[in-house]
């Protein structure tokens, strides 16, 4: 009996193989868990490392952000102004949001609040499939379908322009925004709807007076994530904008986006050159912008969950 007691004590102290395996696996999955943090930091560190020579050398923030002359490979007098590129990205993203927001919200409301049963399932699947189409395919569509279409319909000489890329980007962003927006609508408690319906409100009154205000933050988050997507989109914008450095005067002007500039020029630059560094500096700029957008989207959405 007494021996039994001692053995029990020992067993509860003795760390068995299973105990060590458990601790080992805990460490392994913890490393997996922090990998996302490591990678995010890694991304920032490595693009900064490559862009550093330029940032601390040729880089002049005033020239970089406020002039529109981007001639990075000019041998005598290279110029590094990205204002036109920012304008290109902003105009395309802006138009894309004009296209995407109403459709995304409309689709989210219809799928989330009106459609039922099988119809709802099918629509959700379709939206999910839309979101899966690769951006290079969208770019190809801009190039080969939208381009001649725009030339014909609007009678303009070039169909690769803000309109083309904006519509393409809007179609790309809308399904993602729609599914995030639908999640936000779904997060509104059913009791809110029931309470309003009990007061005699019709379905659309419930949606406009109760559901949309309650889901406001989630919807804003969806829009912000869409903006983030637009800023970061590369291949479609590269192929559909016409790729000419230009501050657009109308939606029929060709432009060039920040992302597309990197994609088009990185292959031609010598590692370590000013041009190379400037492209990485654009990368840092893009990283920071999307970081801020994603962060604020998350804060806005989380805020609603806490309250």
């Amino acid at each position: 009996m007494q021996q039994n007691s001692n053995m029990a004590g020992n067993a509860f102290d003795r760390r068995t193989l299973d105990w060590y395996i458990d601790k080992g696996m805990q460490l392994v999955v913890f490393i997996g868990g922090i990998s996302a943090i490591i990678f995010i930091i890694g991304i920032f560190v490595f693009i900064t490392l490559e862009g550093m020579d330029f940032v601390f050398g040729r880089f002049d923030p005033v020239e970089f952000f406020t002039t529109e002359y981007w001639f990075p490979s000019d041998e005598d007098d290279p110029e590094f102004g990205i204002l036109a590129l920012i304008a290109g990205t902003a105009s395309v993203t802006g138009l894309a949001m004009l296209v995407a927001i109403p459709f995304a919200l409309g689709a989210a409301i219809y799928i989330g609040e009106f459609a039922t049963g099988k119809k709802r399932e099918y629509l959700k699947v379709l939206v999910e499939l839309l979101a899966a189409i690769p951006s290079v395919v969208w770019g190809f569509i801009g190039l080969s379908i939208m381009n001649p279409l725009i030339i014909e319909v609007f009678d303009v000489p070039v169909g690769l322009n803000v309109l083309n890329a904006g519509v393409i980007l809007g179609l790309m962003a809308a399904p993602i925004m729609a599914s995030i927006a639908e999640d936000a609508l779904k997060a509104v408690p059913e009791s809110y709807r029931e309470a309003a319906e009990a007061l005699g409100a019709t379905r659309w009154q419930v949606i406009f007076k109760v559901v949309l205000p309650a889901a406001k933050n989630g919807l804003l988050g969806a829009v912000l994530l869409g903006v983030g997507r637009g800023f970061g989109e590369t291949m479609a914008v590269l192929m559909a904008t016409g790729h000419s450095v230009n501050i657009p005067g109308s939606i029929f002007d060709s432009v060039r986006a920040l992302t597309a500039t990197i994609a088009a020029e990185l292959g031609e630059t010598a590692v370590g050159s000013d041009h190379y560094g400037a492209l990485f500096t654009i990368g840092i700029f893009l990283f920071l912008i999307t970081f801020v957008i994603n962060l604020s989207a998350d804060l806005i959405v989380r805020g609603v969950r806490k309250g």
């Binding site: 990678f39 490595f46 590369t234 990197i262 990185l266």
Partner: peptide, 14 residues
């Protein structure tokens, strides 16, 4: 969330 949101071309630079 940010890893998913970083532009693909920035991933390329990385």
């Amino acid at each position: 969330i940010n890893l998913a949101g970083v532009p693909s071309i920035v991933h390329a630079l990385f």
